[in-house]
Design a protein around this nucleic acid. Sequence first.
DNA 1: TGAAATGTTGGGGCG
DNA 2: ACGCCCCAACATTTC
Length: 470
Amino acid sequence: MTTLVWFRRDLRLADNPALSAAVARGGAVIPIYVWAPEDDGHWSPGAASRWWLHHSLASLDRALGDSGVRLIIRRGRASEILPRLARETGAGQLFWSRLYEPAAIEAEGRVEVAARAAGLATRSFAGALLYEPGAVQTAEGRPFQVFTPFWRACSAMGPPPPPAAAPRLLPAPAAWPPSLSLDSLGLLPSIDWASEIRASFTPGEEGALTRAQEFAWDAVDGYARARDRPAESGVSRLSPHLHFGELSPRQAWYAATSQAADPAAAEVFQRELGWRDFAHHLLYHFPRTPAEPLRPRFRDLAWADSPGALRAWRRGQTGYPLVDAGMRQLWRTGWMHNRARMIVASFLVKDLLLPWQQGAAWFWDTLVDADLANNTLNWQWSAGCGADAAPFFRIFNPVIQGKKLDPDGDYVRRYVPELRKLPARWIHEPWRAPREALAEASVELGVTYPEPIVEHTWARHRALDAFARI
DNA sequence: TGAAATGTTGGGGCG
DNA sequence: ACGCCCCAACATTTC
């Protein structure tokens, strides 16, 4: 019997339970990708994500071709496309990997209803997370809202199962149904702004496995220490690969574990994978949180309305070099170091007092690893309105953070070139540099680089006031 | 996974 | 030699 394998964000052949199960059934396998932004509701992929998706699909198509099959591409709602494809091909069953965003869950529900009506058997598999959201709960049967007990409960279930190898050969059907070309989906931008993204990432399963290997060999042991330095390559940079499922979290887990000299070092990285699971767990149980604070009284916060400040933040023109370096890294490369994300988020929410949803929306459009669960958790964490969130009085000082995390100023110099010649002593606070130092470095504040758009000490008190009121 | 404000301690300069 | 004061360094509290 022919099986349709509906690829979604599991764009890999290895450790893909839906694909492996289809092969195990013995019949032909027809891999299908349905481009259906309307199935994602308000959160259809942003521009950077679409760029990545295009290249990841191209990579998947090549890999499937090498295994003897093709990737069928169609456009439209999954609940209409999939039963129609089953009719065209005579396929009797449909397999896929589960996702956990509210819109994705609804889309799966519609597919199940439509498949039942068409006499098409369906089966879904767990492959996107280490632990299923429904499987982890408190003693009272409620969802965890604090990471540490959540992770303790996960750990008590034992380590995740080891990843499965990719099937060698995929059995092809006698005839292939028609497919759209990848280009016709229009996922690529009309002007090529992605050259720097291309230089720092290789979308697709092969690139993901290479990156995971490199991280395992070079960095796991130094991860705990080096991950706080945005100028260094101490982080895994696996997030976009994990988002698109080019690498399963189980593969990432075991890659790190097998190579780490010190098991405690691997645990630090495993914990980060745990945060990814926690974010999906929260989104699954609290589906309104992408738009609404988990703790409702934060709806009453007296946010500022300042389009100019928002524009300056987006473009990396706040006058705080570390903040601007982070925001420009995002704009130029589609990615930002996690530590920098925390600082720019604190700056938007606390210093500018702008609603966290505005920051989340910008990240959604510009990040190649934009992921609804992670984006929601992290922005609510920064704003202090989410589960296990930063307390309202935790406000990052971008100057102190700069001196701590980027002591030589290398990160700032890379992304804020107009400050390149400024000595490390002043690079995080150019407004305090003596006149001669600025002249020497060809910096003219307010002309070549902006004055700070807010004064941090004043902004800090304003935020403490506003947050204390609720 | 914060930073500022406030409190405490102890070494050393100095009368 | 002794006590006083200053203040840096560290600790604790507060936002």
